[in-house]
């Protein structure tokens, strides 16, 4: 099993519902976020283009944050999802420094937190991650890459996509449809 997510930059409007949705679903404290929206505008008026991306932890297959964690708090869970076990985490910050995407943050409680792909509280119960399920444009797809019929497999087959900083060698599992 290999969980992955795809975000359609052609449909995403940057509304940030995925950010609030994650916050209320996962009790992310006010002032922090597990996902965020990047908007890139290129060109000169009126020859312009915008790419909008809803970003979060890439659940990298070759993930530096898991590698550098001294306690094993950061680990691969079911389906390759990268998780942090709060009471194994010493808050050393190594994983934060190691993530090329700045996807992690120090939770006010002390441990390091980040996107979980909603594995335990939703995905294992057969639900989509919160951000995917609230998105009004339905521009996010989630599922098992090993299952050719999962929404994410299907859309990746159909569309052109990219990942972020492939040259960092992390092998991200968050795909952007372009």
């Amino acid at each position: 099993m290999r969980y992955a997510m795809a975000v359609d930059t052609k449909k995403c409007v940057g509304c940030s519902d995925c950010v609030v949705g994650c916050q209320t679903e996962n009790n992310v404290p006010i002032g922090y976020c597990r996902d965020w929206i990047v908007e890139v505008t290129d060109g000169t008026y009126p020859q312009l283009e915008i790419e909008i991306r809803s970003e979060r932890c890439n659940h990298c297959e070759n993930s530096p944050c898991v590698r550098c964690c001294p306690t094993g708090a950061s680990h691969y869970a079911e389906g390759g999802v990268v998780l942090v076990t709060p009471d194994e985490c010493i808050g050393c910050g190594a994983c934060i420094a190691s993530c090329p995407y700045d996807a992690r943050y120090p939770h006010p409680e002390g441990y390091v937190d980040k996107c979980t792909f909603c594995l335990d509280n939703r995905v294992k119960k057969g639900l989509d991650p919160a951000c995917v399920s609230v998105c009004p444009t339905k521009c996010m797809y989630f599922g098992d890459l090993d299952d050719p019929n999962s929404p994410v497999s299907r859309v990746l087959k159909k569309r052109k996509w990219k990942t972020l900083i492939p040259e960092a060698g992390t092998n991200p599992q968050l795909y952007f449809l372009i």
Binding site: G14, S16, V19, G31, Y32, C33, D35, W36, I37, V38, E39, V40, T41, D42, G43, T44, I52, G93, I96, A97, D102, R104, Y105, P106, P108
Partner: peptide
Amino acid sequence: MREELIVSGRMNRLIDPGLHIWH
């Protein structure tokens, strides 16, 4: 001109606007 913005107001302490996890 290229304009790159985080439009969702992300401001995680010690991470944004620049990484400052180690003092």
